[in-house]
Amino acid sequence: MQSSANIMTIDAIDEKLIAALRENGRASTAELARRVGRSRTTVQSRIERLERSGVIVGYTARLAPDHAHGAVRVHVMIKIGPKEARAVEAALRAIPQVRLLHSVSGDYDMIAIAATATVAQMDEVLDRIGHVAGVERTTSSIILSTKFDR
């Protein structure tokens, strides 16, 4: 993984530790040590090293999907015109219902995740995304359920 200053090698124990922290960032060092099969001191040292190197940049609360994302969530695949990426990104950043934006390869250039409380609100957000200057085409899919979220 890359930090702003250097490249850090992540081993299998680090991967297990990161996965355990993603599941429960408030787990005690003793619980994390049990999960990864190492001593508490070793786990604490690894966490500190991962934080210092910029691999772990913070901790956050995870909310239930309906509270965190809204009741209606949608993936929006976005095709943009040549040299329009920065302008489209800035316009999408200004739409608060757009929660994530990925630059991707393939038939589409970006994938946005949008969330609203109602289908009617989502319809308005999708229209707004479609009218952004530089957006040539969108295709959206409503998320019916999340099978897991790491």
Rank of each mutant, 00 (worst) to 15 (best):
His102Ala: 12
Asp14His: 02
Thr138Glu: 09
Leu144Ala: 15
Val135Trp: 03
Ile18Arg: 08
Ser28Leu: 08
His131Lys: 11
Asp14Phe: 04
Thr42Gln: 14
Met77Ala: 15
Leu100Thr: 09
Ala5Cys: 01
Gly70Ile: 10
Leu32Asp: 06
Leu32Trp: 07
Ile78Tyr: 08
Ala71Gly: 12
Thr116Phe: 01
Thr116Asp: 01
Gly70Gln: 10
Asp11Cys: 07
Thr116Val: 06
Arg62Leu: 08
Arg52Glu: 14
Val98Asp: 07
Arg99Gly: 04
Glu84Thr: 11
Gln97Arg: 02
Gly58Ala: 05
Ile13Leu: 04
Ile142Cys: 05
Thr29Trp: 08
Arg46Ala: 05
Ile47Glu: 04
Gly106Glu: 09
Ala115Thr: 08
Thr60Phe: 12
Pro96Lys: 04
Tyr108Met: 03
Asp123Val: 10
Leu101His: 02
Ile10Asn: 02
Ile143Pro: 09
Ala90Asp: 10
Pro96Phe: 05
Glu51Gln: 13
Ile10Glu: 01
Met8Lys: 07
Arg128Met: 13
Gly54Arg: 03
Met122Phe: 06
Gln2Asp: 08
Ser3His: 09
Ile142Lys: 12
Arg99Gln: 15
Met8Trp: 04
Val43Leu: 03
Ile111Leu: 12
Lys16Asp: 07
Arg137Lys: 14
His102Gln: 11
Val74Asp: 05
Ile129Arg: 01
Gln97His: 11
Ala68Lys: 07
Leu101Ala: 02
Ile10Gly: 01
Arg128Leu: 15
Ala90Gly: 00
Ile7Gln: 11
Glu23Val: 01
Ala33Tyr: 01
Arg35Asp: 04
His69Met: 14
Arg46Pro: 04
Arg40Asn: 13
Ala5Tyr: 10
Thr42Pro: 01
Gly70His: 11
Val88Trp: 07
Ala19Gln: 06
Glu136Gly: 05
Asn6Arg: 15
Gly70Glu: 06
Phe148Pro: 00
His102Val: 01
Ala12Phe: 09
Ile18Pro: 04
Ile7Tyr: 06
Ser145Pro: 00
Gly58Asp: 02
Glu124Ser: 15
Val98Ile: 13
Thr42Ser: 13
Val98Lys: 06
Arg22Trp: 01
Arg35Val: 06
Ala71Asp: 11
Gly25Pro: 05
Val98Asn: 04
Ile47Phe: 02
Ser39Cys: 08
Ser105Ile: 07
Ala20Met: 10
Arg73Pro: 00
Thr139Asp: 11
Thr60Tyr: 15
Glu31Tyr: 00
Ile7Glu: 04
Glu84Gly: 00
Ala12Tyr: 00
Gly58Gln: 06
Arg34Glu: 14
Ser4Arg: 08
Thr118Gly: 06
Ser145Gln: 14
Arg26Lys: 12
Glu48Gln: 14
Met8Val: 13
Thr9Asn: 04
Glu15Gln: 11
Ile47Ala: 06
Thr42Gly: 02
Thr139Arg: 15
Asp127Trp: 07
Glu23Cys: 00
Ala5Lys: 04
Val55Pro: 11
